[in-house]
Amino acid sequence: MSLTKEIGRNSTPAIRLAVVSMLLCGLLFPLAVTGFAQVLFPSQANGSIAHFTTSNSKAVGSYLIAQNFSDPLLFEPRNSSLSASGVDPDITLQDAIAQVPRISNLTGIPQGDINDIINQNVEGTFWIFGSPYVNVLRLNLALIHNFQTIYEQKDPGLFVL
């Protein structure tokens, strides 16, 4: 069979397959995933939004996206330009522990209590595997939640709606 004949014969099915596969893979598939995801895992599917649950339930960002903390009373994230994404929401365990004396000094919360909160929020390890890290937003929310009165007193701005 000649080359041109082979091309000609395959053109019509080819363009039809292109369209069919586009609808199937480009529309049907992501829409189906979206549907299932919204039903099964609504929180994750919409960006793991963090809520300030202490006094009200306002959204305060996403657990997965770093936010700037300039307040020395709270844990600071990595300098954004140090990570690959620029929005690294986590710090290493050492990095967190290193910040404990500062927060303890400024807030008067005993270092041991802060360390406890850190330990409750350590992620990334399983049995002997992995290296521990902590989510900064989760850590700060836990800190505020546990020592609400101290933070209400020291930084009332955090509690503004």
Binding site: T34, A37, F41, Q44, A45, N46, Y63, L64
Partner: peptide
């Protein structure tokens, strides 16, 4: 999605 990756329009 379960592990935290968004899926929304």
């Amino acid at each position: 999605v379960g592990l935290g990756v968004p899926q929304t329009l």
